[in-house]
Design a protein around this nucleic acid. Structure first.
Lengths: 122, 122
DNA sequence: TGAACATATGAATAATTGTTCATATAATAT
DNA sequence: ATATTATATGAACAATTATTCATATGTTCA
């Protein structure tokens, strides 16, 4: 998070396990792919956004509806909808003054379900 | 994130859409469930941890192996492994001085895949 | 045109968080 | 015992972020 890759300490394991480490290194996806993946999950990593997504999976709603539902300010919701939009998880349509938001991704529910499966384990 | 639920502004939509909002409200899962879900995704929302999980999905590795693989300090990795352990995503076994970490969850790869599917869209 | 309403947005702030540094703990070998 | 190695951990710091507040934008209606 802080800064870019840095000098490094070595230990004996690195020699002993060199083969395994190199094999894994070869199999690792692109740095950028993993970064994007983390960025996506970061969007899911906030309970306000989770609630918004969950709500929008039930029904299309306008900004102030969501604010009322979650008992939060319009501004806070609007800021979060912006984040969700940038992540292409929600889309919107304008009807007069009112902007209706809905899910823009079929996998949202599936990602939730995988998460819930983990939580509900043991 | 900051503090607890707060007073709220109302708008006309709340009256017009009252039924929809109430229906959604009834269907929403427990507050705690959604919070836990967000906490779980928060763990996935860091590229260092994503890399660690990805690596461990390929092979069991010790702390300094992971540090070497990712070109990061042992301390940074150790801190992150702690987070992953608390989320019950990894487990470890001790062999002398060396601590080997491995995945403790079958769904990690599936959660990754759902995320990747989203990223690779459009 | 002006008032009212719905939404968006920029700046400020408080809280959270990832990494570093120093050091502690634990195991092994000499 | 002592030195060495592998890992864990607490404090500190910098960076990020969610919400609030004030205000701007855009739409409708009188």
């Amino acid at each position: 998070m802080r800064q870019k890759p840095e000098p490094i300490e070595r230990c004996l394991c690195d020699v002993i396990h060199e083969d395994v480490v190199n094999q894994v290194k070869d199999k690792m996806p692109e740095e950028e792919t993993l970064y994007d993946l983390a960025e996506l999950f970061k969007v899911f990593g906030d309970s306000t956004r989770i609630k918004i997504l969950w709500a929008l999976d039930e029904a299309e709603m306008c900004v102030c509806d969501i604010a009322a539902l979650l008992n939060m300010t319009q501004s806070a919701i609007s800021h979060q909808l912006r984040v969700l939009k940038q992540a292409q998880l929600v889309k919107n349509r304008k009807e007069g003054k009112v902007v209706y938001y809905s899910l823009d991704d079929d996998h949202v529910k599936q990602i939730f379900d995988q998460g819930l499966t983990h939580i509900n384990e043991d």
